[in-house]
């Protein structure tokens, strides 16, 4: 009797396992993600997981802000995953309250006291640089 119960429980466990696997792959879209990721370079993969638009902006900031410069973000919520990723990719540039550069993503261009427009990234973002004293 116990052996029969065990066989039934094992069969149920295997069915649930396959169901959860199938749900992850086909309902949640993991299979589609894997297909796309398989065809990309490492940088392309970083772009895909971050979001191509945001990653493009981060790359733009990396190319235009010197390595050891300080910056601040606008357009990101504090503690948001996007901001954490951007911080990671921009390092060794560091985020400070009084930065040399401000990276604004999905924020309309506006004047900031003590800063001038430095570079624009299409319609999605721009960088302002602190004016020299």
């Amino acid at each position: 009797m116990k052996k029969i119960v065990l066989h039934i429980l094992l069969a149920v466990w295997i069915v649930l396992w396959v169901m959860f696997l199938a749900r992850e792959l086909f309902v949640k879209g993991a299979f589609r993600d894997y297909r796309i990721l398989a065809g990309r370079t490492l940088d392309g993969k970083r772009s895909y997981v971050t979001g191509d638009s945001l990653y493009g902006f981060i790359e733009f900031c990396r190319q235009n802000i010197p390595d050891r410069a300080t910056y601040a973000f606008e357009g990101f919520e504090d503690g948001a995953l996007d901001k954490r990723r951007a911080t990671y990719y921009l390092y060794p540039r560091t985020e400070t309250p009084d930065p040399e550069f401000i990276c604004a993503y999905m924020v309309p261009v506006r004047a900031r006291e003590g800063y001038s427009l430095y570079r624009e990234f299409g319609d999605t973002g721009y960088i302002v640089k602190k004016d020299k004293e």
């Binding site: 894997y34 990721l37 398989a38 993969k45 970083r46 997981v49 954490r84 990723r85």
Partner: peptide
């Protein structure tokens, strides 16, 4: 190994 580090 299919994707880089990306979780929070």
């Amino acid at each position: 190994l299919i994707k880089p580090i990306e979780s929070y």
